[in-house]
Design a protein around this nucleic acid. Structure first.
Lengths: 128, 128
DNA sequence: CTATTATGGACATATAAAGTCTTTTATTGG
DNA sequence: CCAATAAAAGACTTTATATGTCCATAATAG
């Protein structure tokens, strides 16, 4: 079990955008170069972020991506959910027993993970 | 990101063995039937558990698998590590920056997950 | 209008998980 | 010792998912 590279790229992109203080859009070309990834692939990931309302996009010359207005509220969990989806990390295989005691433990652990990720904001990493 | 089915099978197998109170070995055949998985595949997973010292195996007639003597100490984390390996859930892509602030956050979240999984034992689920 | 930039869909490739088959090794009961 | 039983090991196939490419389309600024 590993976080995908896509999540990695998404998180770093969000941090780049957050450090780029004013509302000047950054193009995918530039963002891709900084992360050493192909622009077309990164573009697909960023489109997910747009659809989930994490960032805004502007087509055309001097276009690119900007963070949404209330970006300071965006948590790590928000970004990860936008890229990886929101389904649980564990499903019981035994006829999908809804009362599986193992599943209960696994979900409680996942909750701890999510709580931490929910409390950490991209904006916390940008304060100078 | 999902836990593998292998982890699922491993956890359920450990619970089956724990409920089978005496030291009578259970064969992979029986364990596989109960979980509706092929015996050869399950066998590979159980071999990992043997190598990591979670369970003991006995070949030959009336052989099979038993929990190790101090099985009451075995945590969910132990089992998951035996099956999925111990490497971290997140690696920074940017030239593997060791001081990546994003990585720090991700690792702290992973720690919360692991703490919970370390505190939960298979034996807790078996107390009648 | 044209250059620029994001979006979308259809592919292609790579990697990992899931599962099978066969042989070998170990152990027990007779 | 022998035969039946059961785990271990290796090579292999299949399936699923992540990663990545290519090209056409849509939107926008100048």
């Amino acid at each position: 079990m590993k976080y995908s590279k896509a999540t990695n790229y998404a998180l770093h992109t969000m941090l780049f955008l957050a450090k780029q203080i004013p509302n000047k859009p950054m193009g995918v070309q530039q963002l891709a170069e900084m992360q050493n990834v192909s622009p077309t692939y990164l573009s697909k990931i960023l489109t997910k972020l747009v659809k989930e309302g994490m960032i805004n996009s502007v087509s055309g010359a001097n276009g690119g991506y900007t963070l949404r207005h209330d970006w300071e509220d965006i948590s790590f969990l928000d970004i990860i959910h936008a890229v990886e989806g929101k389904s649980s990390l564990f499903d019981c295989c035994l006829y999908n027993d809804p009362k599986c005691v193992i599943k209960e433990v696994m979900l409680s652990a996942e909750e701890k993970l999510e709580n931490e990720l929910r409390n950490r904001k991209i904006s916390d990493l940008v304060k100078k």
